[in-house]
Each structure stands twice: as structure tokens, then as C-alpha cells.
């Protein structure tokens, strides 16, 4: 039953090896936009998640880490 976990973990760690992807720090003007933040609509997402959690058989999946300006 933990086989999916193994596959996912391998995949995610593997993805982090693609270190030539990405942009230079000064090229993040668009990514720094407040509407590009992963939690820019966190209230909407929280309310939606609450509805779907109580009306459907599965839930979860989201995370707010990463992206953005890359400043400091």
C-alpha cells in the first residue's frame, strides 16, 4: 500500500535534480506579482476545500510553498 508513496517521493526528489530549469533572480518581476503567489486566493481555496471536503469522498493535495519573488 505504500508503493504509491515510493513512486511519488522518487519522482519529486528526481524533479529537484532538474537544476537547469529556472530564471535569474532579477528576472522574477512577473513571478513576484501578488496575484502569482500560490496563496493569493487562500480564503477562496479554504472555503472551497471545506465544501468539497464535506461533500466528496477525497480531499487534500494543496500546498503553498515556493514560487514568488525569491527575495531575501
Amino acid at each position: 500500500m505504500l508503493k504509491p508513496a515510493l513512486v511519488a517521493v522518487t519522482l519529486i526528489i528526481g524533479l529537484s535534480g532538474c537544476s537547469n530549469l529556472g530564471v535569474q533572480p532579477w528576472e522574477k518581476g512577473q513571478l513576484a506579482r501578488s496575484d502569482m503567489a500560490l496563496d493569493s486566493e487562500k480564503l477562496d481555496l479554504a472555503l472551497d476545500d471545506h465544501i468539497y471536503f464535506s461533500k466528496e469522498g477525497s480531499s487534500g493535495g494543496r500546498a503553498f510553498a515556493g514560487g514568488g519573488c525569491g527575495c531575501n
Binding site: 533572480p25 519573488c69 527575495c71
Partner: peptide, 15 residues
């Protein structure tokens, strides 16, 4: 153009 920034090899903003 960012060419000077590239020469300085910035790791983050500001630097």
C-alpha cells in the same frame, strides 16, 4: 539587459 547582473552572478534580490 541584466548583463552586469549576470557578470556579478547574483544569487538573489537585492544583492
Amino acid at each position: 539587459e541584466g548583463d552586469v547582473a549576470r557578470s556579478f552572478d547574483l544569487l538573489g534580490m537585492p544583492s
